[in-house]
Design a protein around this nucleic acid. Structure first.
Length: 457
DNA sequence: AAGAGTTGCAACCGCAAGCAG
DNA sequence: GCTGCTTGCGGTTGCAACTCT
């Protein structure tokens, strides 16, 4: 039985399909470009669907808009990204995640598509080399800024009337994070790993340096047995259970990707109480990965699967969330990763500007909650599995980063030396160290270690 | 030289928001 | 409030160019 609405929809699709059959697809020709440029000169941007009618160009409006925006509009920069642009992209991605259009707004002359392609390429490279997605210093700065942001956020919560939060930096950013919120799927940030953590320790507790961000409760649909979800440690196996005040919960491993820097304010807040709870938790001790120590000491790096990067893998830590919780949650918050210091004032200015230029969807007060939260979580399983194979990632480091991390003599290398640096870093990883001989085990273990994790959810 | 594999980019697709009627 | 159209965004794919064996 097909409803009227469905029938209408079907008819519309049929008409649309028929109409689209005469439209050209594929690469644009110079002649087509000329027509489109001429059209825009006459009529201006917008109303792209009328291009075909008025100019005879056999392209759909979408295609015209894309071609104009990505290739034909004036003031577009061509060529590869400069080291400075790369730095900005990394910073913005750390803050915004895959918000390509918003990133593009901070890079004049660059398109969202360019940035997206750059990032995905970079991710692939870094994955292959077993390098972290973000430079180490970013992770540290981010952690510091998050601490500051969290403190500020708490103050705002304590004194909502005394604080003009609507104009505060954090609130600006907070308001910019509505778009991707899904109460069933909270993306947490693994950046809070202790970077100095000794991976050879048996005790996993330090790994979860911020319990509020790392532990989550979950219901178990199959067994009715709820438990705690833990981020998957790159250092060792997870406990099978966690004891909180003499009550033992089963633990589930949840994979982590490099930081998306998204977390959910409401989750964070609700988990503050959870934090105090978990502070008294005892994590069941587990053995480190067999052979890890010997492998490291022998200078060998575990083999890494060379799986292709899948750009649809979701970033962050995936946690199960009781569907009854946070149903009115609309406060996913991006935490800026940089400290309020002089060195980053330019970035902060950009962030403020960016925050004031929120896209329309992100100006919304609330987000529609997921209609099938648990279904979505179930569908996450494949994604989670793929995550195990897809991280860490790898890419040559930009000049600004290399200059501070690569050994003397490499610091002022031109941008074209990226491959050389990458090779050196890969070689260093094979030795179990970074190029400057600083042990970098944080992500360098490669996904083989992640694959040794216990089964996920 | 040739085939296989990889890379980088351009373009497409589906979805969702904004907006006008 | 509903509907249809337009626009924008992010994910994904296709393919030419390049590199490797």
């Amino acid at each position: 039985m097909i409803s009227n609405g469905e029938a209408a929809m079907e008819a519309a699709l049929t008409v649309q399909k028929a109409a689209s059959q005469g439209l050209k697809k594929g690469p644009w020709t110079a002649a087509e470009d000329a027509i489109l440029i001429e059209y825009v000169k006459k009529h201006g941007e917008g109303n792209w669907n009328s291009v075909q009618k008025n100019s005879g160009l056999m392209r759909c409006g979408k295609s015209c808009r894309l071609r104009w925006a990505n290739h034909l509009r004036p003031n577009l920069k061509k060529g590869s990204f400069t080291p400075e642009e790369e730095r900005i992209i990394i910073e913005l991605h750390a803050k915004l995640g895959n918000k390509w259009a918003r990133m593009a707004s901070q890079l004049p002359g660059r398109t969202d598509n360019e940035i997206k392609n750059f990032w995905n390429t970079r991710m692939k490279r870094r994955q292959r080399a077993g390098l972290p997605v973000y430079p180490q210093e970013y992770q540290e700065e981010t952690t510091a800024f998050r601490m500051q942001h969290h403190h500020q956020h708490q103050e705002e919560q304590k004194h909502p009337n005394n604080n003009p939060s609507s104009s505060s930096f954090s609130s600006l950013l907070s308001s910019s994070r509505k778009a991707s919120y899904n109460p069933s799927l909270t993306l947490l940030d693994p950046i809070n790993f202790s970077p100095a953590l000794d991976p050879l320790h048996n005790n996993l507790t330090p790994f979860y340096s911020n319990p509020a961000l790392q532990f989550k409760s979950f219901p178990d649909n199959n067994t009715n047995n709820s438990g705690l979800a833990l981020p998957m440690s790159p250092y060792g196996r997870l406990p099978s259970s966690i004891t909180v005040f003499n009550q033992t919960f089963p633990a589930r491993a949840i994979p982590m990707t490099p930081p998306s820097l998204h977390y959910n304010t409401a989750d964070f807040e609700t988990n503050m109480s959870f934090t105090s709870l978990i502070m008294g938790a005892q994590v069941e001790p587990v053995d480190p990965i067999p052979g890890l120590k010997s492998e490291l000491s022998s200078g060998q790096t575990p083999p890494r699967p060379n799986t292709p990067f899948s750009s649809n893998t979701r970033g962050g830590i995936c946690v199960r969330e009781e569907s009854s919780k946070n149903t009115d949650n609309d406060s996913e918050t991006a935490v800026p990763e940089m400290m309020h210091d002089n060195s980053n004032s330019g970035l902060l200015d950009a962030l403020l500007l960016e925050s004031q230029n929120l896209s329309r969807k992100e100006k919304l007060i609330g987000m529609k909650p997921s209609e099938e939260p648990m279904d979505e979580m179930n569908s996450m399983d494949d994604d989670l599995l793929s995550l195990l194979d897809n991280f860490p990632t790898s890419t040559p480091l930009p000049e600004w980063y290399r200059s501070t991390n690569i050994a003397n003599g490499l610091s002022s290398s031109p941008a074209g030396e990226g491959r050389r640096i990458e090779v050196e870093q890969e070689a260093s990883l094979a030795r179990g160290t970074t190029a400057d001989e600083t042990p970098n085990v944080e992500w360098a273990f490669g996904s083989s270690y992640w694959n040794n994790m216990p089964g996920i959810c």
